[in-house]
Design a binder for these strands. Sequence first.
RNA 1: CGGGGUGUGGCGCAGUUGGUAGCGUGCUUGACUGGGGGUCAAGAGGUCGCAAGUUCAAGUCUUGUCACUCCGACCA
Length: 489
Amino acid sequence: MAKQLTSRKENYSQWYNDLVVKADLAENSAVRGSMVIKPYGYAIWERMQSVLDGMFKETGHQNAYFPLFIPKSFFSKEASHVEGFAKECAVVTHYRLKNDENGKIIVDEDAKLEEELIVRPTSETIIWDTYRKWIQSYRDLPVLVNQWANVVRWEMRTRLFLRTAEFLWQEGHTAHATKAEAIEEAEKMVGVYATFAEEYMAVPVLQGIKSPNERFAGAVETYCIEALMQDGKALQAGTSHFLGQNFAKAFDVQYVSKENKQEYVWATSWGVSTRLIGALIMSHSDDNGLVLPPKIAPIQVVIVPIFKNSEQLDAISSEVVKIIEQLKSKGITVKFDDRDTHKPGFKFAEWELKGVPVRLAIGPRDLENKTVEVARRDTLEKETLQLIGIADKIEHLLEQIQINIFQKALSYREDHTYSVDNWEEFTKRIEEGGFVRAHWDGTSETEQIIKGKTKATIRVIPVDEIKEEGKCILTGNHSKQRVVFAKAY
RNA sequence: CGGGGUGUGGCGCAGUUGGUAGCGUGCUUGACUGGGGGUCAAGAGGUCGCAAGUUCAAGUCUUGUCACUCCGACCA
């Protein structure tokens, strides 16, 4: 009973923390604000990486790697960019340690860097400084590059996966000859993120653009996907930016066009991070632990043998080997938990906590009857099935679970999305949590005031939606369309 | 940066008016058990965050210090 989780109702954030730690995903480290991602948590990240990486390649991108350290001077080249990140940068000032007279290790003041180095909070500056050298002619365009990397943002308050000082992510950086092409790229990539979130993570997302307040530092337009968590708070799950010519001008990246004219290139950048793991957890999991969608689960099927002695285990194992063979041939990842150090009940609870979509239990009774007990994690239902054709049934079941998890999350979001037209109802709905669709007069000031009064921000301005005119929820001024407000992580 | 809180076996905690440390869990060994987190027995494991001070005596009182954590302002 030691691994009992705090219930979501009792304390949602405690539940989240308990779950991350007890499901063996990650833990706090000796470094304040930085986490250790444990093997099971990292396996989820690897699944995400592998799918996303495939999608990036599919859309014409290549991977590369740029330095962790960025010369400080690079940051001063794009004004709004530096303003956005200046307050949370780690700075390297020295390159050597030494022993003092007491034998203590201290920084060697003689080894001060001529120019301080910034630990990248994002890589636009170093990448655009590099692109200047790569790009001369329209023949060099487009440049479609992605990198998988770690970045550091010195956050004051951190939470496992959702906000840590150092996190893992990918950042795509592209350069284009025309504005239209760059915008198309930025839109395409937010679309890739939406597809990934919905089809693989089974997390329904709203797609659209950010208000100027929420826009990326240095971007002309920020596209995003936004998900709703089970506690009614929004989570930004991915962003894609149209950077205009801001970085090209700051780093003097020009190309010669077909018409033999010097032109600045057009840019995009886009990224998702290990925060996606937080989104995954908070979208689907329950009071018994993680619930992983089959397409992301590191282990899709776990098999637990029920046995009293090694003879029984051997008999069961020879049957299990055949099942594993069939499942593997269908590309299903399966684990046979034949540890004799733990009892079946313990294993059931443990794999449930870790969110494995399907569990098979097989014991002497099943051997006699040629059956197996199949339990699904999402609904906690169990049934006993004939062994004949079991792989097909499981393959089908995994598909069903993937769909069910998505539908469940989708109906949660629909049940917690409200269109409101007066301030009183607005504040009430925001207080309760959920997406609140309301009219906004389009000004930054209004958004700031609303944020000050309710803590809600504009999460997304939907794009593919019929525009409906109205009056701003706060000021009563003219509004061209509804936008989505929520309290956010 | 402002305001709370906490530092005691691996983890979570208790420790009364000061008398030299205990509980749960986990760990080790064995037996019985095994279709939902087992039972019993026997063990191992702590300079009580650190440093001064008061005292015959400090986990406990005083001062300082360090670390962590929660709530706010800032953020993917």
